[in-house]
Design a binder for these strands. Structure first.
Lengths: 219, 219
DNA sequence: CTACATGTTTACTTTCCAGTATGCAATTGA
DNA sequence: TCAATTGCATACTGGAAAGTAAACATGTAG
């Protein structure tokens, strides 16, 4: 076997391993979402994947390691999604805030179960794991607060307490994850545009800016 | 023993029994809040009260009955607190909404652990118990939406979707329960007045009405 | 003094599940 | 064709905790 082939095989193996981990995460997350972490047995997760319990242990050291991986997902995705938006200094603060809300809600719809599991099951993590994730979460809030302050400086927003307002906006988006059910009375677009409008109200954004952006979100 | 004395004794007994149930609820709620429902043993609850496990069974049929009683608390308190406010037709919609926010946040501070436990552990309830509580919760949202519609008719508010807005306002208040820690950087009054201001923004209330009420909340 | 009721405990059972030791089958390389 | 490694399963262990049976202590009534 050539070195190139060897490398190719090694990559494929890693890809397969990553894929298996992803599938374990997905099924575990689904069961944790529906039944709770403690009420979900590793046997039940294995059964959904048509494998056995020891198989799971070849990919995750133990049950909390699996929970940790699930809990990280939502916040890491959100941080990755907002980074380029926040960096785009060609756009106004209002524009960036609107795009941020849309991007984060998209993550929330796509990774809803992961996010809800984190919100509910955080206390089952090791202290080290929990702290790491909480730091990511703080970073998110901090970045959002910074955007709000920029908008305030630019006279686009009227905000009394940027930290508290950022926290509330984060909460408004997380709250969507906690109640949204696909097939409900509101479409995703309705929720995105309505949330965006409320976020704009909360930061005291100019009405003209708002309506154009909300309409854009409806597409 | 006279009939009157008999009755008095019976009442005292009930009061004592109620008190015992309340203390069990409080300690259980505290442990569920800190460790989660499944990770909390009945022995641990008993130990905090300096009694034994079978003692708990003389007051609660089983563990989920106890959880059910805890989960009911927050929503029942909230419903009771908002009822007189909503009924007060002498007050404007803005005024009633402000008082509602203050009243509900007071409940949220006083019964924080009960509320958080409900949010996290609802899935551990029987289907029957869960449905009953969810109906109370819907009733709350419905009453709030009705108030918003009244304010809209009175031209006090500008609202696109009263149901979604009521849901969001409920979420903003519940979110406080999920992150607030006494001894944090914000006082309760700061949180109440800031939340009230954001709620007023979200319903598009007139700025004049707002500031007077927010100031009143600061007392 | 006796019988009964009330309130609480001691001691037990039973079930369940995370984690593991061991074994086996298939693929790979020489 | 024969090791050897990889990838999984079978089968087990150990401990924990919900729920219960039965005893016990304290007071109450007759």
């Amino acid at each position: 076997m050539t070195a190139a082939a060897n490398l190719a095989q090694a990559n494929l193996k890693h890809e397969v391993a990553d894929f298996k981990r992803r599938r374990i995460r997905e099924e575990a997350s689904h069961l944790f979402f529906e039944q709770g972490y403690e009420s979900t047995t590793l046997d039940a997760i294995a059964q959904r994947l048509d494998v056995t319990k020891p198989f799971l242990y070849t990919h995750y050291a133990n049950k909390t390691e699996l929970l940790y991986d699930i809990c990280r997902t939502g916040i890491l995705q959100s941080l990755a999604a907002i980074e380029p938006i926040l960096m785009d200094r060609t756009d106004s603060a209002v524009g960036r805030l609107g795009r941020l809300v849309e991007a984060v809600l998209t993550i929330i719809f796509d990774f809803q179960e992961f996010i809800v599991v984190y919100e509910r099951e955080e206390k089952n993590l090791d202290e080290v794991q929990a702290r790491e994730i909480r730091e990511h979460r703080s970073l998110f809030d901090h970045k959002l607060a910074t955007l709000l302050e920029q908008g305030q400086l630019a006279k686009e927003f009227e905000i009394v307490d940027a930290v508290l307002t950022a926290n509330t906006i984060g909460g408004m988006m997380t709250w969507v994850a906690l109640w949204y059910r696909s097939g409900g009375k509101r479409t995703r677009y309705q929720i995105v545009s309505h949330t965006m409008a409320m976020v704009f109200s909360v930061v005291g954004a100019n009405r003209q800016d708002q309506s154009a952006l909300v309409a854009a979100a409806r597409r």
